[in-house]
Nucleic acid binder design. Structure first.
Lengths: 255, 255
DNA sequence: GGTAAAAGGTCAGGCCACAAGACCTTTTAG
DNA sequence: CTAAAAGGTCTTGTGGCCTGACCTTTTACC
C-alpha cells in the first residue's frame, strides 16, 4: 500500500525501470562474486579466458572486458605468457580503497540491513540444522571443524570456515537454504574479501574457533535455541569486524 | 568442496553458463511476478503499453512482446479500443492448466524446498517482528487485520492478507526482509495465483483469520516463540493448499 | 639453449535484439 | 458523431555480442 505512494505512482514495485544486465555485467558480477565468496583466494589464478568461455558460454571479448573491469578496480592482476592469467591480488581492499569508498559508503545503510538479515537467517539456519540434523550431515561438519581448528594459515582457516558454514546449511536438508546463505554472503562480500581479518584480528580468529566448536556441539546435541543464539552472535561479530575495516578505510580516505 | 566435483569440473558454482536475460524476458517476468504477487488481481487491467514504457524504461515492441507471451500462457486477455488493455484473466490456473503441468511438475521438488524455506523465513520474520515491534508498526497491522476480518469478497481478503503480511515484515524494521519475503512469495506463486482458494476452501479461509488474529496478538504482546510457531504453521497450511490444487491439476491432466 | 605450448592481446566482419518514432485501426466515453 | 484512448503495424538505426583468425609474450620441457 505504501509502495504505491512512495514509488512515483507505480502500481507495483515490480514496475520500476528495467536494468538490462549486459553479458559483460553478468560475467564481471559472477567473477567478482566468486572471488568475494572465496572460491578464488588471493594469489590464486582465475581460469584461463578460453576456459571461462567454455564454462560461461560467452564470447572471448565479453570475458576479456569483464576481466578488464576487475583489473580496473584492482581486484585481479593480469600476467602474460605461459602460466599467465588473472591472479587475485593479495589484500585487495587496500589497493582498491578508493573504489570501496565510492562504491560502498553511499550504500552503507543497505549493508547494515544486510548484516542484520544475515545474522537472522544464519541463526534460523543453525536452529533448523539442530532440529533436523542427520548423522550423515554431521560428518562434513566435524571434518570442516577439525580443519578449521588445525589451520595454520589464514587461507586454510578461510577455506575451512567456508566449508563449515556450508555444511551447517546442508544439514538443514534444503538446497534452497544453501543458496540463500551463499547469496547473502556474496551480497555482503561484494565490496571486500570474505574475511577481512588482518594480522591484528587473530584473537577474534581464535574466538571464532570457539564459536564454531560450540555451534557444532549444539547442533550435534540437537539444541536449536542454543545453536541459533551462537550463530547469530557469531555473525554479528563478523559484521562488527567488517564495520571496523570500513571505518579504517573511511578514515584513510578522509586523511 | 563437493561442488567442485559435482558441477562438471567447474571451480565455482558462479561459473555456470550465463543466461543473458533479454529485455523481453525481464519485462515478462516482472509482469508475471506482479500478477502472481497480487499487485494486479483477476479482472484488473495492467497499465497501458505506453505507460509501461514510461515505468519500465523500455521500448514499445519489447513491452508488446512481453505482454504477448503472457497472453500466450493465458494469463491475460487483450482488449482493444478505448479502455482496452491487458486484463488479468479470472482463475487463470484452470485456463493454463496445461502450462502448469509442463512448467511446474518437473520442478516440483524445488517447490517443496521453497515452501519449506518460506515457512522458516516467515517464522523468523514473525519472531523478529515480535522482538522489535514498535507502536507505530502495529497500526498498519491492526488496520490490515480489521480489513481482513471484515472482508466480504475473496479479493478484499486477498488484498488485506497481503497487506497484513507486508506489515509484519515491515515491523522488523529491515527493508531487506520485506524484499526477501516478497521474493519468496513471487518464486512460489509464479505458477499459480497468490491464494488458489476456490469456493471449497472458505473454511481454511476462516481458520486463516484466526491465524492472523493470533499472530497479531503474539507480536503485539512481544512473544517471539509463539509468533514464530503460528507463522510457520500458517505458511505450512498455505503450502498444503497449493499442494492440493496441484494434485487436482495433475489428476485432471492424467484423466 | 631452443622450441613449442599456453597463455593474453588485437582486429574485422556479421548478426540480432532493442530503441525511436510515425502512422493505422478499433473501440467507446461524452 | 466525434475525439480520445487504447492496441496493431511498420521502418530505420544502433550497440552489444559472437565468430574466427592472427599476433605477442612467457615459460616448461626436451
Amino acid at each position: 500500500m505504501l509502495d504505491r505512494v512512495l514509488l512515483s505512482g507505480a502500481p507495483s514495485p515490480e514496475l520500476r525501470p528495467v536494468r538490462v544486465a549486459s553479458a559483460v555485467d553478468e560475467v564481471a558480477d559472477r567473477l567478482l562474486t566468486a572471488i568475494a565468496v572465496g572460491d578464488f583466494l588471493p594469489g590464486e589464478r582465475l581460469p584461463a579466458e578460453r576456459e571461462l568461455i567454455r564454462l560461461l558460454g560467452v564470447s572471448r571479448p565479453t570475458v576479456r572486458e569483464a576481466i578488464a573491469r576487475l583489473q580496473g578496480v584492482g581486484v585481479v592482476e593480469i600476467r602474460r605468457g605461459r602460466n599467465g592469467g588473472a591472479y587475485v591480488r593479495d589484500s585487495w581492499t587496500e589497493s582498491s580503497a578508493a573504489a570501496v569508498r565510492h562504491t560502498l559508503l553511499p550504500r552503507w545503510e543497505e549493508f547494515e540491513q544486510l548484516f542484520d538479515l544475515r545474522g537472522l537467517v544464519e541463526g534460523m539456519v543453525a536452529a533448523t540444522a539442530a532440529r533436523r540434523r542427520h548423522p550423515r550431515d554431521l560428518e562434513p561438519m566435524r571434518e570442516a571443524l577439525a580443519a578449521y581448528l588445525s589451520a595454520r594459515t589464514p587461507r586454510d582457516a578461510q577455506t575451512a570456515d567456508s566449508a563449515f558454514h556450508q555444511a551447517v546449511c546442508a544439514a538443514t536438508g534444503n538446497p534452497q537454504i544453501v543458496m540463500l546463505s551463499r547469496d547473502l554472503l556474496a551480497r555482503i562480500s561484494l565490496g571486500f574479501p570474505v574475511e577481512p581479518w588482518g594480522k591484528g584480528e587473530r584473537t577474534h580468529f581464535h574466538q571464532g574457533g570457539e564459536d564454531h566448536k560450540a555451534l557444532y556441539e549444539s547442533i550435534a546435541a540437537g539444541e536449536p535455541e542454543r545453536a541459533e543464539e551462537i550463530a547469530q552472535r557469531h555473525f554479528m561479530i563478523s559484521a562488527e569486524m567488517i564495520r571496523d575495516v570500513l571505518a579504517r578505510v573511511r578514515a584513510a580516505g578522509e586523511s
